[in-house]
């Protein structure tokens, strides 16, 4: 187990290192000049040169990479070129929206997806099972931004129950802030819940057909008991793996949905920063997101390993 953990952490570090090189090379090959953007239309060439120097843009590429990577290791994330404030401060501000959004989404999708999946498994072959699975296929196919627009149409513009977008901030009223996150989280969670439900159903059915469950049932264990005591816990392992697989798409879904609902979160920040050639911000955010994906994958791997030690070696869904 310890060896497995070590191997995975090592792999993670290597992935992050390679990822950081890719991000840096891609972004520093940009044609737009951040100094020009900062200085505006009538900047003199002198001013541009001076700003280049001030920003360290006149250094050779490898040195700039080392500066950036070194800064990251010591948790110095650099300074935003557009806003002239530390990137860490920007990130902290934006994560106050993106993290709750992702959290609520995850909660909603699990809270909807798992029970529905188990319910379908318990009714295998019946009309209600088929209905659930058809509905899940449908929801799975809905692009989250379109779902968002439809939710806005229904809940905000026709029924006036919830705001159609924007974020009032946490301070004046946490309740209003939560309300602003309901529709975006729902738009993200419904397709995820559909995927989870389908998966949970087949995983539960799979577990129900395993020998030890059959044996237990032969010994007189009731269907419900077999379901909850054996099948569901065993189905959770592949489901956790699935959450790991879905995570990168959920993360980028957040970026899209933040645009649909005009939420000033991390996704909006990265899109704006790309527009503005705010390199430090783009680099840090992209690497942060890449790091999150890698971290979640490793965590999911280890969790699966812990829950089911039979999964040795390199098998990963």
């Amino acid at each position: 187990m310890i060896r497995a953990v070590g191997a995975r952490l090592g792999g993670m570090a290597l992935t992050l290192l390679l990822g950081s090189v890719i991000v840096f090379l891609l972004l520093n090959a940009l044609p737009g000049d951040p100094a020009l953007v900062m200085l505006g239309l009538d900047a003199t060439p002198d001013a541009v040169v001076r700003l280049h120097h001030q920003l360290g843009l006149d250094l050779p590429l490898p040195l700039r990479y080392l500066r950036w990577a070194g800064g990251l290791l010591t948790l110095h994330l650099g300074t935003s070129l557009t806003y002239a404030v530390p990137v860490s401060q920007l990130l902290a501000d934006r994560l106050r929206i993106t993290l709750p959004l992702a959290g609520i989404t995850l909660l909603l999708s699990v809270a909807i997806g798992l029970p529905v999946g188990v319910a379908a498994a318990a009714r295998q072959g019946r009309v209600s099972d088929t209905a659930i699975m058809v509905a899940a296929q449908l929801f799975k196919a809905i692009p989250d931004f379109w779902g968002g627009v439809l939710l806005i149409l229904l809940f905000a513009l026709v029924l006036h129950w919830l705001p159609s977008g924007g974020f009032p901030g946490w301070e004046p009223s946490p309740l209003a802030a939560l309300r602003a996150l309901v529709l975006p989280a729902l738009a993200l969670a419904l397709p995820q819940a559909a995927i989870l439900a389908r998966f949970m159903r087949s995983a539960t059915l799979g577990a129900l057909s395993e020998d030890f469950v059959r044996t237990a049932r032969a010994k007189g264990l009731g269907t419900q008991a077999a379901l909850w005591r054996h099948a569901v816990p065993n189905a959770l392992v592949p489901v956790i793996t699935l959450v790991g697989i879905q995570f990168p798409l959920l993360l980028t879904g957040t970026i899209i949905v933040e645009t649909v609902f005009d939420l000033p979160g991390l996704g909006r920040l990265v899109l704006e920063a790309i527009d503005q050639r705010d390199l430090p911000v783009v680099q840090d955010i992209v690497l942060l997101l890449v790091g999150l994906v890698v971290l979640v994958n490793v965590a999911v791997d280890l969790a699966a390993l812990r829950l089911d030690p039979r999964l040795g070696g390199e098998r990963r869904a």
Binding site: T15, L18, G19, P248, T252, I255, L289, V290, V293
Partner: peptide, 9 residues
Amino acid sequence: DLGLAFPPL
């Protein structure tokens, strides 16, 4: 692993 860490967006 590296490829999976870079979502299309």
